[in-house]
């Protein structure tokens, strides 16, 4: 009985000792050894690999927010759309700002094919990636009800705007497989920033 009690006390005190151990981070510890004579203080000179702050993200919370679509199509959802359905949705939800057929109004002009005389930057003459259309329309349009469109509606609007900018035929079905393959006319003009500081103005 006594032995058992002693064992328990020993185990508890060991545990206590471990939890009581103070760890301090001091990258200059080597120069200041004299100050470190306090019992039970462990000094580390490297930052701990983690601080154990925060919690594991659940798949549900990641999926709820992970709405981005990459240029290679990663992130595109199921569903599909076409230009005809897109025109109907555009008339109802987009034309008030962007003009009857995307030719511009209170807000940006969206339609002008590459080589057109229109100077404004549009999807047809400036946007380099077709996937950006889906990503952007889904995350923030229409302006008065951002993020309210269903995936099929977004596919249809994407198809309509690509068609209006003379990039696809009116009959093309736009979905997760076909959209990344739509090559935008302006893509070939894009180059990475080449400014580097130094004497040369770029």
């Amino acid at each position: 009985m006594l032995l058992l009690l002693l064992t328990v006390v020993f185990i508890v005190s060991c545990k206590d000792k471990q939890e009581d151990e103070m760890i301090v981070y001091n990258k200059h510890a080597a120069k200041r050894q004299h100050a470190d004579s306090v019992i039970n203080v462990k000094i580390i000179t490297e930052m701990p690999p983690t601080f154990d702050i925060g919690r594991k993200a659940t798949s549900a919370e990641i999926n709820e927010w992970d709405i981005d679509v990459r240029a290679d199509g990663k992130g595109l959802p199921e569903g599909s759309g076409n230009a005809t359905e897109g025109k109907a949705i555009f008339t109802q939800k987009c034309a008030a700002c962007h003009g009857k057929d995307g030719e511009g109004g209170a807000y940006a002009r969206l339609v002008a094919a590459m080589g057109d005389t229109v100077k404004t930057k549009t999807i047809g003459n400036y946007w380099p990636w077709s996937t950006t259309l889906f990503d952007y329309i889904r995350r923030t349009m229409p302006y008065n009800m951002p993020g309210s469109l269903k995936d099929n509606e977004v596919y249809s609007l994407t198809a309509y705007l690509l068609y209006r900018n003379k990039i696809i035929d009116s009959s093309k079905i736009i979905d997760a497989r076909s959209l990344p393959g739509v090559v935008m006319p302006a893509r070939k003009y894009y180059v990475n920033d080449d400014r580097r500081g130094g004497p040369e103005v770029r």
């Binding site: 990459r70 240029a71 930057k121 999807i123 380099p128 990636w129 996937t131 950006t132 990503d135 952007y136």
Partner: peptide, 11 residues
């Protein structure tokens, strides 16, 4: 491992 080509970094 690649940029996302969002609207704000393209158009």
């Amino acid at each position: 491992d690649q940029p996302f080509m969002t609207r704000e970094e393209t158009s």
